[in-house]
């Protein structure tokens, strides 16, 4: 049982207009086995939270803390965080020329586990995981994300989630840009990872659509860099009917 704890997190980025605060005091605790959905309108800071957890250099943490079982995550480099058990499925996965998926997956697995996976079982695991995500075998020899469609990229993010078996997965708008069939395939993959056990999940999404396939126990609504409301799955149902308008109205009224 692990715990990822975010306390009063303030994060800013440098822009041409100067330093811009994005997260203004976010606190969140995720335990193994829990699935938390983070929802909110564009620009509310959802993706900033995801990138900050992973350690993207663009984001500056001004105050607050992120700990993984008490260890200070903010002091770790990006790859150390991954080896500690954090995984980020990216909204826009990056193309890596010259590196095949096969080579990439094996190198990542070796880095995460601290030893090379046993060749025979590993090859079998990769093939099986690819098949379940309806990824054609020839993708194994293609360069990472190079020339992949949006849906293919997202399926490969979930492939990595299933193979690398992190303690906590942050899924940054994994559902955006997917058609219904791809959304189902991707959601099945996430559910397999959850049911395999030992995983805490932070599901970041703009839409409620993916929550029909992946059921969160907790829903947090982000507005303007803070958590405006939290609740159970029923909150997601309400958002589906009403959208984010009432938060934005409240924001305008208080502004």
């Amino acid at each position: 049982m692990s715990t990822l704890e975010i306390k009063d997190l303030h994060v800013s980025i440098e822009t041409e207009q100067g330093i811009k605060p994005i997260l203004k005091g976010v606190s969140l605790t995720i335990n193994t086995g829990e699935t938390h959905a983070i929802m909110g309108p564009n620009g509310s800071g959802k993706s900033t939270l995801a990138s900050t957890i992973a350690g993207h250099p663009r984001y500056t943490v001004d105050s607050g803390s992120i700990t993984l079982d008490g260890e200070n995550v903010l002091e770790m480099s990006v790859d150390e965080r991954a080896r500690a058990g954090l995984f980020l499925a990216m909204q826009y996965p990056v193309e890596i020329p010259g590196v095949t998926m096969t080579n990439f997956l094996r190198t990542a697995k070796t880095a995460i586990d601290g030893e090379a996976p046993k060749l025979r079982t590993w090859t079998k695991d990769v093939k099986a995981a690819m098949a379940q995500l309806r990824i054609e075998p020839e993708f194994a020899e293609r360069n990472v994300n190079e020339g992949f469609s949006g849906g293919e990229k997202k399926r490969h993010e979930i492939l990595q989630l299933e193979l690398l078996r992190p303690k906590f997965a942050v899924l940054d708008e994994t559902d955006s840009g997917l058609d219904v069939d791809a959304l189902k395939i991707v959601s099945e993959g996430v559910n397999r990872a959850i049911h395999a056990g030992g995983l805490g999940t932070l599901l970041i999404t703009h839409y409620t659509r993916i929550l029909r396939y992946i059921k969160p126990q907790f829903v947090h609504v982000f507005v303007d860099g803070t958590i405006a409301e939290q609740g159970g799955p029923e909150l997601a149902d309400r958002l589906e009917e009403e959208g984010y308008d009432r938060y934005l109205v409240a924001e305008t009224a208080t502004a």
Binding site: F87, I96, T107, A111
Partner: peptide
Amino acid sequence: EQLFYLQTRGIAE
């Protein structure tokens, strides 16, 4: 960004 991506998979710089 490519470096970041590979590092998020545990691979050192």
